[in-house]
Amino acid sequence: MSEMSERTVTVTCPSGPLQVRTWQAGEPGWVALIAHGYGEHSGRYRWVAEQLAREGAAVHAPDHVGHGGSPGERALLTDAETVVADLECVRETAAREHPGLPLVLIGHSLGGMFAVRYAQEYPQHLAAIVLSAPVLGTWHVLDLLEYSEIPDTPIDPQALSRDPEVGRAYLDDPQVWHGPFKRRTLQAIERCLRAINHGPALRAPTLWLHGADDDLVPEADTRTGVDAVRGSRMHEHIYPDARHELFNERNRAEVLGDVLSFLNRELARTDTTRGKS
């Protein structure tokens, strides 16, 4: 087995000099771009990135502006379109390093919202999309905008996973934002969801994953958004008893297996199409 290589680099994007983690094992055959969720950072995706790299991916995972090691006021997102432009910037960097390789976009939670908006704006770059508990359709957190002062409603770590170690690590992580939502962030999310709901259907083959016991981003709310952008090649897996962070859940090996089965099938189709062109 090839030795795993992990690097942290800085990529100058529309939001500024973003921190990007990369993983690779041997000569890659495809590129995976990971968009993390609200208040966290790309380092929390180390396990899944390493598994993808061992399956032939060159993994690139930026910290969004205001998150992790990237600059900006913590957990402040003033415009989701800028985050989408940042993802395109990171994609361009990955494409220069790995020219001609197919791209898979993986988005979790709020990163899933960014991934869908990216797919609407840059469909030509995508071989496949994986959405893990994406914020789509409606989101109950936006109800906080009704308050004149946003109340501090921290995320319950027990809602992340049935594995209590996941919640403890989340609480102890200094790069995770544990403060209240910011009004401008919620307003940016609301605008992005509206744009997605009125945007085009997804053209790339898409795998939607969700936990049936996800209280942070309920599956029923997300389904309204999925139905709004559902393309002809949409697949889904709803996992009984699973909570929000499927790549950190007790059945994460099952989840990863479903992801790899989907990607192997779709990337094989991409290779066949290239061979005919």
Score class of each variant (00 low, 15 high):
272 T>A: 15
156 D>P: 09
5 S>T: 13
123 P>D: 13
254 E>D: 12
6 E>A: 13
112 G>L: 08
148 S>Q: 12
159 A>G: 07
207 L>Q: 02
61 A>K: 12
73 E>P: 01
163 D>N: 13
57 A>S: 14
151 P>A: 01
187 Q>V: 12
155 I>M: 12
18 L>Q: 11
208 W>R: 01
183 R>N: 05
227 D>F: 02
201 A>V: 12
191 R>W: 12
47 W>M: 00
106 I>L: 10
261 S>L: 13
243 R>N: 00
163 D>L: 02
11 V>D: 04
234 M>N: 01
151 P>T: 01
210 H>K: 08
179 G>C: 00
176 V>W: 07
40 E>C: 00
72 G>I: 06
35 A>V: 14
47 W>C: 00
205 P>N: 05
185 T>W: 09
270 T>E: 15
183 R>S: 06
158 Q>P: 00
137 G>V: 09
17 P>R: 11
153 T>E: 14
220 A>M: 05
170 Y>C: 01
4 M>I: 10
147 Y>V: 04
20 V>N: 07
6 E>H: 13
82 T>P: 02
175 Q>Y: 14
56 G>R: 14
17 P>I: 07
103 L>K: 06
198 H>Y: 14
252 R>Q: 05
239 Y>N: 02
207 L>D: 02
88 E>R: 15
272 T>H: 13
15 S>R: 08
249 E>A: 02
207 L>I: 09
148 S>A: 12
59 V>N: 02
33 L>P: 08
83 V>L: 15
11 V>L: 13
203 R>T: 15
97 E>F: 05
34 I>E: 09
32 A>W: 03
35 A>Y: 06
116 V>S: 11
127 A>L: 08
99 P>E: 08
274 R>L: 12
4 M>D: 04
35 A>F: 09
207 L>W: 01
179 G>N: 02
108 H>W: 09
58 A>E: 02
204 A>N: 04
142 L>P: 06
69 G>T: 10
18 L>I: 12
31 V>M: 05
107 G>T: 08
66 G>P: 09
150 I>V: 04
141 V>P: 03
195 A>Q: 13
63 D>P: 07
89 C>A: 10
138 T>V: 14
52 L>P: 05
24 Q>T: 08
190 E>W: 11
161 S>C: 11
221 D>C: 09
266 E>C: 05
71 P>M: 02
95 A>F: 13
78 T>S: 13
60 H>K: 00
124 Q>E: 15
131 L>I: 10
